[in-house]
């Protein structure tokens, strides 16, 4: 007996291997709907808060109206004050993260390449990674002074460990057969590293970079707040001490927007690396 089944090519790929434009549009529409859904939730929550504050159920001292927060945010942005703060925070985060990424991936690779170093330092690294690095801030203030350099160094230290550890693990988990392929093909060390090891480890390394950037940003904002220096974080602390809750929440919204922007950027980056 023969059964004949209907075999349709599955998914958005046509037999010729090209992407079906209709399927692409359908996917875009789906993602747009998701974004709209999230916006609706935020707006709805805002509306509930607005009503709760306006009707006196929540004290204005504890929480200003969401419309007041937005006004403070827009004013801050328009007079350039917030942009200046954003610039400082972005510069600190950017320098700290770039340094953490470069140093972290290099050290992670070296720890794997020299197993004796890996065995010696691995436990210490895990211990450090779970330590509250942000509490180093008084030390950094003493060493570097009350300036953005101290903030940048803390951001670097915080981002370094996750990048280093994930890079180390990424190389440890490499498929050993790839290394054999590289050897049988008689690749030079440089070719093997650039063309096989690095691309093979990349998806996991990117996960580490995502973590690293998040940690760096958190610690930069945290230290700015604690020490009252630098950008957005210090503004939150200033508004807090002045009891200007609309400004404080405005700056908080600003820092959340910053995190979300970074998150979207990272998602794009990850997608590009993981597309395969």
């Amino acid at each position: 007996m023969t059964t004949i089944t209907n075999t349709k090519p599955a998914g958005p790929v046509t037999p010729a291997g090209r992407r079906d434009p209709r399927a692409v549009w359908r996917r875009r529409l789906r993602s747009l709907r998701g974004t709209a859904g999230r916006l609706v939730i935020v707006v709805a929550l805002g509306a509930v808060l607005e009503w709760a504050v306006a009707s006196g159920r929540i004290s204005q001292v504890q929480l200003p109206r969401p419309t007041d927060m937005l006004r403070a945010l827009v004013e801050g942005l328009l007079d350039g004050h917030y942009l200046r703060l954003l610039g400082v925070t972005l510069a600190e985060t950017g320098v700290a993260f770039t340094a953490a990424a470069v140093v972290g991936t290099t050290l992670g690779y070296l720890l794997w390449r020299r197993p004796i170093l890996g065995r010696a330092y691995e436990p210490a690294l895990y211990a450090l990674a779970s330590a509250p690095i942000v509490l180093l801030y008084p030390v950094l203030l003493v060493v570097f002074g009350r300036n953005p350099v101290a903030v940048t160094v803390l951001g670097f230290l915080a981002g370094l460990l996750p990048v280093l550890i994930t890079t180390f693990q990424a190389f440890q988990r490499l498929n050993p057969t790839y290394l054999k392929v590289a050897r049988v093909m008689r690749l030079t060390d440089r070719q093997a590293f650039l063309r096989v090891l690095l691309p093979a480890a990349m998806p996991s390394v990117v996960v580490g970079l995502r973590l690293g950037l998040t940690f760096t940003l958190l610690n930069v904002l945290g230290m700015e707040y604690l020490a009252g220096i630098g950008g957005v974080g210090s503004e939150i602390s200033l508004a807090y001490t002045r009891l200007r809750s609309d400004e404080m929440y405005g700056a908080l919204v600003l820092s959340i927007a910053l995190s979300v922007a970074f998150l979207l950027l990272l998602n794009r980056l990850t997608e590009r690396v993981m597309r395969r």
């Binding site: 498929n175 057969t177 054999k180 050897r183 049988v184």
Partner: peptide, 18 residues
């Protein structure tokens, strides 16, 4: 060491996914 006249196919996954 690997000889230039050798080619090898392995049991395990060896194609480069990237």
């Amino acid at each position: 060491t690997p000889h230039p006249g050798i080619g090898m196919v392995f049991q395990e996954e060896s194609t480069f996914p990237w």
